[in-house]
């Protein structure tokens, strides 16, 4: 699928957000994120990896994706100022 020109960045940003939401909901339902609370955790490595991945993706989403999305929207969707037409000479 080919995206319209200029929409590659927002599509990638949406992917990060979707990944964050998916990981967050899975972690909340399973309770695996709690492995980060125990400093000497000897739990298996998969929950710990997923919890750290969620943390990384979440920090990226909030600190990079959110500001980037707003900046992109302001620069691309904000109506650009139309070039003013040369004023006509009323005497002519």
């Amino acid at each position: 699928m080919k995206l319209p020109k200029g929409w590659g960045l927002p599509a990638r940003l949406v992917l990060v957000v979707v990944l964050e939401m998916g990981l967050r909901n899975y972690a909340a339902r399973s309770g695996l994120g709690a492995t980060l609370l125990a400093p000497s955790s000897q739990s298996n490595e998969v929950p710990l990896f997923l919890a750290l991945l969620l943390l990384l993706v979440r920090l990226t989403a909030i600190w990079i994706v959110l500001p980037l999305a707003i900046t992109w929207a302001l620069m691309n969707l904000w109506p650009r100022r139309a070039k003013q037409a040369a004023p006509s000479n009323p005497r002519s």
């Binding site: 990981l23 967050r24 909901n25 972690a27 909340a28 339902r29 309770g31 994120g33 709690a34 980060l36 609370l37 919890a51 969620l54 943390l55 979440r58």
Partner: peptide, 14 residues
Amino acid sequence: APATGDGRLRFAMG
């Protein structure tokens, strides 16, 4: 990382 579903709130890291 709070997550809401089915009217319930849970913290993903909790």
